Simulated assay, not measured.
Amino acid sequence: MSSTGQSESTNNFFNGWLPITTGLYSFVTKYEATLIEVYEQESAEDFALEHKYRQVGPHQALLKDAAKIYTKTMFHKLQDQFDQVVRFITIERYAEGNVRQLTVKAHSARAESFELQIDLEKLTGNCGCKLFEYVGLPCCYLLKVFSKYDILKIPKAFIMTR
């Protein structure tokens, strides 16, 4: 690196941390504090970068899409719903064209089941639990149906705007 480049690099590093008129004694005493501040700032930026985007497994395309759409709080609520999907099975009760009526019920002895209707062409539908209508997030039952029909992105009809 040329001496001009070294000088510019050094000036750029200390610019904003130490005034240019700082004497040698003051420089040595403030140098360590400056390095600690720079380290803390970089650590904060690394933390923000790591947590800005939600961590999602490589096989969870639906959650990857949700991570781009929802705020952090809403994403975590959706992730909680997504984690419950494995507890359920879907039973198709009626099909007419692209419209399906299904029952989603629990594997366990709990008598938990809900009726759903979904239009696979328009990607619209509703669930008997009404979570989407009340909270603005697709419920675990809808997510189970999305999984059954390989819907890999949250349909626009199930994204509630602020």
Rank of each mutant, 00 (worst) to 15 (best):
F146Q: 03
C140P: 02
K148S: 06
C127K: 06
G136I: 13
L116A: 02
T161Y: 13
C140I: 00
K148H: 10
L152F: 04
E121G: 01
K153W: 05
G125V: 06
C140L: 07
D150L: 09
C140R: 15
E112M: 09
V135E: 15
S147M: 04
C139E: 05
K144H: 10
I151F: 11
R110M: 09
P138Y: 15
E115M: 03
P155Y: 14
R110W: 12
Y149I: 02
S147P: 00
E112R: 05
Y134M: 08
G136F: 12
A111Y: 05
P138T: 07
Y134F: 12
G136M: 09
F132S: 09
G125T: 06
L137H: 11
N126V: 07
T124R: 12
P155F: 14
K130Q: 06
L120Y: 03
N126R: 06
K156R: 14
E133V: 13
T124E: 14
Q117Y: 03
C127D: 04
S113F: 11
E121H: 13
K156Y: 13
P155W: 11
T124H: 10
S147L: 04
K153P: 00
Q117C: 07
L123V: 00
L143S: 01
L116K: 04
T161S: 13
K122E: 12
C129F: 08
L143R: 05
F114P: 00
F114S: 02
R162W: 11
L143T: 04
D150Q: 14
C127A: 05
K130Y: 06
F158M: 10
Q117S: 10
T124V: 15
I151R: 08
C127F: 05
A111T: 08
E133M: 03
G136N: 06
K122C: 06
L137G: 09
T124N: 08
C127P: 02
Q117W: 12
R110Y: 13
D150R: 15
S113H: 04
K153I: 00
P155I: 15
K153A: 08
F132K: 12
G136T: 04
F158N: 10
V145W: 05
K122R: 13
T124A: 12
K122D: 08
T161W: 12
R110Q: 10
V135N: 11
F158A: 05
A157Q: 06
L143C: 03
L123A: 04
K144P: 01
P155D: 14
Q117F: 09
C139I: 01
T124C: 09
P155S: 13
E112Y: 06
K156M: 07
F158V: 10
L131Y: 05
L137W: 11
E121F: 12
R110L: 14
P155V: 15
L137E: 06
G128D: 07
G125Q: 10
C129G: 01
D150S: 15
I154N: 10
L120D: 06
K144N: 02
I151T: 03
I154W: 10
S147G: 10
L116V: 02
D119T: 11
A111P: 00
K144S: 02
L142D: 02
A111I: 03
K156N: 13
Y149C: 01
F158P: 02
I154K: 13
L116C: 11
Y149R: 05
I159S: 10
C127S: 09
K122W: 03
A157S: 15
L152T: 06
C127H: 05
R110I: 09
F114M: 02
M160I: 02
